[in-house]
């Protein structure tokens, strides 16, 4: 009877260790795929490309729902995650760092989170000619 109990305990430890191992692996993968650094980098570049290709008078709605999820997790207000100024697009989804990318289009960009219902997590980018 005692021996059987020992074997069961060993099996349980073996199983628990396996589960811990797999959990760590899955968490690592999820963190890598949905990490703030990765999302900040890709969004800053994509928005910089949008700015580069935009013509004055253009209005663009940008879906930043993924970024909103991450910023909400990190306690950053959605209205503060995007900054477009001095030739740089900056996305900041956590207290640390943030990612900036330079754009070459000399255009005036006004931007704000979309307030329309059903468009939560969207930003509106409005492009206008720079005044001399």
């Amino acid at each position: 009877m005692k021996k059987r109990g020992e074997i069961l305990a060993e099996n349980v430890i073996f199983l628990v260790l396996n589960i811990i191992f797999l959990t760590i692996l899955v968490l690592f993968l999820l963190k890598q795929a949905g990490g703030a650094v990765l999302i900040e980098g890709s969004y800053s570049k994509e928005i910089a490309l949008l700015v580069d290709s935009a013509k004055h008078g253009t209005i663009i709605n940008v879906n930043l729902q993924k970024a909103k999820e991450v910023s909400d997790e990190n306690g950053i207000d959605f209205s503060e995650i995007l900054k477009i100024a001095d030739g740089y697009v900056t996305i900041k989804l956590s207290d640390k760092g943030g990612s900036s990318y330079h754009y070459f289009n000399d255009i005036n960009v006004s931007y704000y989170p979309d307030k329309n219902p059903g468009y939560e997590g969207f930003y509106v980018l409005n492009f206008n000619r720079k005044r001399a």
Partner: peptide, 21 residues
């Protein structure tokens, strides 16, 4: 994973095309 996500997201070709256009 490091090989896949460690590589930068290279947008320079698109950027250069936009500039040329």
């Amino acid at each position: 994973v490091n090989t896949f996500y460690g590589k930068g997201y290279d947008v320079r070709e698109v950027e250069a095309r936009i500039l040329a256009e």
